[in-house]
Design a protein around this nucleic acid. Structure first.
Lengths: 298, 298
DNA sequence: GGCCATCCATCGCGAAAAGCGATAGAATCC
DNA sequence: GGATTCTATCGCTTTTCGCGATGGATGGCC
């Protein structure tokens, strides 16, 4: 059934409500003649009269066929309105945003971002994905936190430099900075060689420092526990350390590395040339702001 | 959100499916430029891009806003298709028909009509209304059986003459015709004075026959039981008698009245100048046919 | 790197339609 | 019978729709 448009159904409903072409026209801001033609077009499209016109002051009356069209038409119009409402909500910032993340960010940055985003947009739908893999598939996500650059058509916004710190059992080193050169052959607990860990080990190796990796685990807490247990030392980014409550831990000591290793860089990524939802755009702003506050506080 | 029409949503869905304006155009029988303009119009209407166009052979990709519009749009299109299907079914004769009736018709004629209508249109929705009142409100119904003429803008189709018969306890009268004049002052069981009963009593009175009404009830079976019990005689239309299984009833006898009383006329009524559904139109045809068969059989 | 293929945007044009105002015709009410 | 209240219809203008052709941009290929 071709050529039935929402406009026709709007007119149909108005006429059915008002009982008269003229009053429907007034309600819709049309002329009576326009309404007449719209109904005629609709009747042509559905192949039969939708109103009986008694003539004179009697109200027009819907036909059985018209009732069928009207019932479905009202549903259509309601759905159309709900679409309009959804679009408005979307533009106001509600909607869904899919964010990829990884441990340090999940622990320190993201909670603050999510909190503020949800405060601003209580109806929004934030979905987080903490992927195990090295290669992030940013294509499926709106936004992605990542500690390193990535190839492909991806735009990146550098959020912060996350310096590496040495974590050791208290007493292993005197307080104060430690030269990473001293870590050669030292037993070390470390992350798996994905993300920035690979780059870190390259940087150490480049200085002739080849620690003896005695255990690899993705869990920050596990790394710290192992250090606490005397398995070895750990070189962790500040965010990874700061996330755990290490400051008040009597059995661990944190040391600046001097000369410093190149810091881990944390980026916010998204597929290039892709239109952001208002919610995603706001998430970027908030992330930048949150990172600024964290850096300022440090 | 003005000016979003189904056409735009159709195009949107096609482009989303095909991943390209050109292929969508081919599917829809449009040109690529037309699709381009349709999407542009839609984007203007919703106030933002619905596709990211990477350029080159890469497929276009829906934006978050576009996804919102698309999700609702598909629902709209599905509803539109369901409307088209409903219209087709309606035109094929399915749908609803509301029929008003009364006892004699309900018992004898209507079952046959309903049976054939349902055989022809298994999906149809036949609703029967047996109103207690004298004045039928035909305005709410598509079709109405009634035993008498009615005022107002009602078209009437005379279905049949239903002659009055005398029902008496066997032995009260000798077999064969009975002169109604003999019923003056006779104890009589009768219907309430609605429908044709009032006219019947007038016709009797006009001939100077004033039976003594000893009991009035709307139930045909009750009338017959009372006659059987000896309360009196009854003058009933043939249909009312034929509905009950009186022929094989030893205790009752049926007598033609001679000279005959003016028969009850049974009409099929509908509101004048009102468009019939195909189902209602067919119901009229079937009713005429059924009545013809009944008359023929008698 | 140059060439080619693919793809979308845009412009001009002709046809269709949407919408308007005015008028005519039909039915009802008083 | 006239007044009133309807809808249908006829020109007419403006907008939209759709087409064809062209141009610009991107990616793949040799």
């Amino acid at each position: 059934m071709p050529d039935v448009e929402l406009r026709h159904l709007t007119t149909l409903a108005a006429v059915a409500d008002e009982g008269s072409f003229g009053r429907a026209a007034a309600r819709l801001g049309y002329t009576q003649s326009t309404v007449s033609q719209q109904i005629a077009a609709l009747e042509k499209a559905v192949g039969g009269a939708v109103f009986d016109r008694p003539g004179g002051p009697k109200p027009v009356r819907i036909t059985p066929l018209g009732a069928v069209v009207l019932a479905h038409g009202r549903e259509l119009l309601a759905k159309a309105q709900s679409m309009a409402a959804a679009v408005d909500r979307f533009k106001a910032g509600d909607g869904r945003v899919d964010i990829g993340t990884f441990q340090s960010v999940s622990n320190v940055i993201l909670p603050l971002v999510v909190r503020r985003l949800r405060d601003e947009h209580p109806g929004c739908d934030i979905r987080l994905f903490e992927e195990e893999t090295d290669r992030p598939h940013v294509g499926e996500l709106d936004l992605m936190f990542f500690d390193g650059r990535v190839d492909g058509d991806v735009e990146h916004l550098k959020l912060l430099d996350d310096p590496y710190l040495l974590v050791a059992r208290r007493g292993t080193f005197p307080d104060g900075p430690v030269d990473p050169a001293g870590l050669d052959a030292a037993p070390m607990v470390a992350h798996p060689p994905i993300c920035d860990q690979a780059r870190l080990e390259q940087a150490l190796a480049h200085r002739g420092v080849r620690p003896r990796i005695v255990f690899r685990t993705a869990g920050n807490e596990t790394v710290l526990s192992m250090v606490r247990a005397g398995m070895g030392v750990a070189v962790l980014p500040q965010l990874a350390v700061g996330g755990a409550d290490v400051g008040s831990d009597e059995s661990l000591s944190i040391h600046e590395l001097r000369p410093a290793l190149p810091p881990r860089e944390i980026f916010l990524l998204w597929q290039a040339d892709r239109t952001h939802s208002p919610l995603a755009a706001r998430a970027i702003e908030i992330a930048v702001d949150v990172v600024g506050m964290i850096a300022e506080r440090a």
